[in-house]
Design a protein around this nucleic acid. Structure first.
Length: 305
DNA sequence: AACCGGCCCTGACTGC
DNA sequence: TGCAGTCAGGGCCGGT
């Protein structure tokens, strides 16, 4: 499941293998992959033809190629990998993958760029670039319109952790839901949210406004740290012609303390890790190190009156 | 306005 | 063996 570290690995692959090349032909299969491109798949393919890739950029889990056509301003080809999306760099003659949705040929006759996605939660869209509203932004071409509402991720200079802590203090929602809200801080998905909360010893259901600012800071510090560690390991595991999202699989095996460990002993205290349904997902936590919040007194009192 | 739940999608797995 | 049901979850959308 691509979260920030996996998407960053893919971005690095695009920098190495795609940036600087000119698209000669784009083939989009079906309509679902381009559902966020309002003008449809044929328009998307047509407008990418003869476009030169200027850069590969990322914020959180959003990835985009800045492309330049001869008679237009730079635009963004936004790529979201969703749950199962992959970008592959392969020879044009390579067998078609079962869930191949898009293929790009380049005018240097080098390898193709392909978008493969089994579950098509991901997709492609060509959008305008707008100035980034966050101070300290390093996105020199701006950000795509669909990324405007996405908060900076912890690995970019525009990330302002004290500001995020202040925003969390004003929220009245569970800390895990807040971590998964990409508008506040981006890049954290279900796996790293569970890991960060385990490391910080905070229950996923704790109210953000009820946590102290130092505790909120610790949660964010751990989220940042766990993603940095995953990136450090994931970045070593793809070869030259294969830009893969699965760089973190080895990391999962060795380093996860909470996610996917239901019933196994907590690595701090030995208590079996518990899994609970939350937001149509699962939360994994140690019931001893991360005790459930007490009854929400204010809400309970109100309901009794 | 903030918050929350439902939905999309397909392959792997489980239980009868 | 086959088949129905469940699970995985990022992001968007609509209801409260």
């Amino acid at each position: 499941m691509p979260e920030l570290p996996e998407v960053e690995v893919v971005r690095g692959g695009l920098v190495d293998h795609v940036v600087g090349r000119r698209i000669a032909a784009a083939a989009i299969t079906g309509t679902r992959v381009a559902r966020r491109h309002e003008a449809g798949p044929l328009d998307l393919a047509a407008r990418l033809t003869d476009a030169t890739v200027l850069s590969a950029d990322r914020r959180g889990k959003y990835l985009w190629l800045v492309i330049q056509t001869p008679d237009d301003d730079p635009h963004a080809l936004v790529v979201h990998l969703g749950m199962s999306g992959q970008l592959l760099v392969e020879e044009a003659g390579a067998p078609r993958e079962k869930h191949l949705h898009a293929a790009f040929d380049f005018d240097d006759d080098g390898p193709q760029l392909r978008f493969v996605d089994q579950r098509t939660f991901g997709g492609l869209a060509l959008t305008e670039l707008v100035p980034d509203r966050w101070p300290g932004s390093t996105h020199t071409h701006g950000v795509p319109v669909p990324v405007e509402h996405i908060g900076p991720d912890p690995l970019e200079p525009a990330y302002d952790q004290p500001a995020v802590v202040r925003a969390l203090k004003r929220r009245h929602t569970a800390i895990k839901r807040a971590l998964l809200d990409q508008g506040l801080v981006s890049g954290v998905g279900n796996i790293y949210a569970d890991e960060a909360l385990w490391r910080a010893q905070v229950n996923p259901l704790r109210e953000t406004s009820a946590l102290t600012k130092p505790a909120l800071g610790r949660v964010l510090d751990h989220a940042t740290e766990v993603m940095r560690e995953a990136l450090g390991q994931g970045g070593t595991s793809f070869d030259a012609l294969y830009v893969n999202i699965n760089g973190a699989s080895g990391y999962f095996d060795r380093s996860l303390h909470a996610y996917g460990r239901e019933g196994q002993p907590c690595n701090r205290c030995g208590t079996p890790i518990r899994r609970e349904a939350f937001m149509n997902r699962s939360s994994h936590y140690c019931p001893r190190c991360q005790p459930r919040p007490r009854v929400r007194r204010a809400i309970t009192d109100l309901s009794r009156r």
